[in-house]
Write a protein that binds this DNA or RNA. Sequence first.
DNA 1: TCTCTCACTTC
DNA 2: TGAAGTGAGAG
Length: 740
Amino acid sequence: MSLSMRDPVIPGTSMAYHPFLPHRAPDFAMSAVLGHQPPFFPALTLPPNGAAALSLPGALAKPIMDQLVGAAETGIPFSSLGPQAHLRPLKTMEPEEEVEDDPKVHLEAKELWDQFHKRGTEMVITKSGRRMFPPFKVRCSGLDKKAKYILLMDIIAADDCRYKFHNSRWMVAGKADPEMPKRMYIHPDSPATGEQWMSKVVTFHKLKLTNNISDKHGFTLAFPSDHATWQGNYSFGTQTILNSMHKYQPRFHIVRANDILKLPYSTFRTYLFPETEFIAVTAYQNDKITQLKIDNNPFAKGFRDTGNGRREKRKQLTLQSMRVFDERHKKENGTSDESSSEQAAFNCFAQSSSPAVSTVGTSNLKDLCPSEGESDAEAESKEEHGPEACDAAKISTTTSEEPCRDKGSPAAKAHLFAAEPGGRPRDGGRLDKASPDSRHSPATISSSTRGLGAEERRSPGREGAVTAKAEEARALPQEAFAPLTCQRRETGRAGAGLAACVGLTAVLGHWGRGKHPFIPHPSPFVLSIRSLLDHMGQFCSVTGVARPGMTGLTFEPREGLMFAQGMGAAVGAVGPSPPAAPARLTRGLPMSPFGSLFPYPYTYMAAAAAASSAAASSSVHRHPFLNLNTMRPRLRYSPYSIPVPVPDSSSLLTTALPSMAAAAGPLDGKAATLAASPASVAVDSGSELNSRSSTLSSSSVSLSPKLCGEKEAATSELQSIQRLVSGLEAKPDRSRSESP
DNA sequence: TCTCTCACTTC
DNA sequence: TGAAGTGAGAG
């Protein structure tokens, strides 16, 4: 028999609700996103035996069924002989009883992140994908040892601005480009027990960042059911697509679920670490970041000054060219008695060209940021033990970072918080205003974290190695960068949720065979559950990927069409979005608030869930990513963050909300710093420049007493050539070297 | 500003 | 030994 969307499945049968069917008609907001009828749509049928069946049109059956074959490995039997996939009925309709847990998350390699944050927050993305640096690693505690968890990570837009690196500073350069389809990265070890997660550092180093819009390392799922915590389309992948010159904020999610199938209907605990915010670039703009990476990333070892890598050779090459120039200059002037001074000049340049000069440059960086000196020295010392040892050390030696932050100059502080969206108050970001019934309200936000300070004081094991003094010392700064957490508790309707899982498992079972348990290889596979609904004439939506530079509304259909073809081949364009559709549709982005702080896109919130989010709104208001009140209509759909509008270019380096700064309370110093950040950073840059200039000039000065007339001119020319050839010290900060 | 190639590295 | 991860640099 066929089901219409409104046909309820009788509770008590094998499926209380069909996985893909909401039990009620879509509300207004939901309706607004509809309007597209995909060319192909499989039909859903419910056979008499009560099991769900996936019936596909003949042309589609084969590829889809091929994808589903692997589902058998997950224990879900279905026939591969025909177009009907019989899915095993769910054992239970009730969610598992939850044992209270209290997850805490500690960001690993925090010092590295802090340095990263201070130096410019640039993260390189490439077409083929580039790993994150610093690597995103966390340590969890407070999990139920027996329970299973799924850990995820995603990266959301921090604001809707485009940035440029100008005068050694990151400045807003306009409105953001169309947002890329966001993807959720599921940790390959998921699901695992709390004990397993807590026994190790959870690293997401395999996640890659790309700017390749046609990246095929992702796939999309759609959950139209308004019973689900997830609603809309959900993309997964090993690579996250980002826009260059845009600011992003990684997020970490803990989901208590023993099966990937239950993911969409489970509670999400979301953690934000402000220091992990970054600006995506295709090439490093700020050599501080470059140097930081070279110093800390083993793969970049070849560029370290101490090595025999390319950098060394390049400098030797420079040296050689200088020598040639010197000889030629000698010939031209013909006097040998000047050789001593020339030798002095040469020595000067030789020195400048030697690795030692790079060290000078590095020291300049340290001079630039007094608070960095210690960190750099520390980083260098760690280098002796390798990056991994470095990271490991950071786990229990976070005290050393504190002086950097607390004793840092205002400039350093400003810089520290410059890229921190909203200058998140340490407490303002915690959402402890959950309503008592938050567990049952899809839009209710509740806190699951009390801040790292408390967490670390409490969590055993790792902290055992940390002295009480160290704990005390790091408490304050840690709080300053305490992860902003948000928890969504959505028990949902078990029938709908679990039933949806059936369909999910059928697909994920195949993916589980690959390297990544949940990532399909090698071909992308996009499953559109919504397309099923489309077929029923109830739900239609335009989803796709907006391409940068597109004029008008153009969509690269993903769900329906890719579903239709099974293996992701492109088909024709989908029709334009309905004129009255919300912004998210006009952009055609297939993303959803997947794991976001709200279970619904804010477009939904207004009509569908705003009422239920009343309890959360106060918290939301204080959260830069949740601020519905201050957000302005965006032309693009932002499935996750609700960015705080950047007031003006004069405060480009801080997106702090005044209210948040005011709410910072104990952070008043930092809040004040925030206000002064632009100027402070300017001073910062200036000081570095001065430092650099003095370094160069001091070298020259040692020559000048012996030089006269042509000699000085020649030396000057030498310097110019030297700069041109080797880039030397002025090069590091490309644009900085040009600033007065 | 981006993309590609290169030489170098780690694993 | 080769795949993969790096920044530099050319275009």
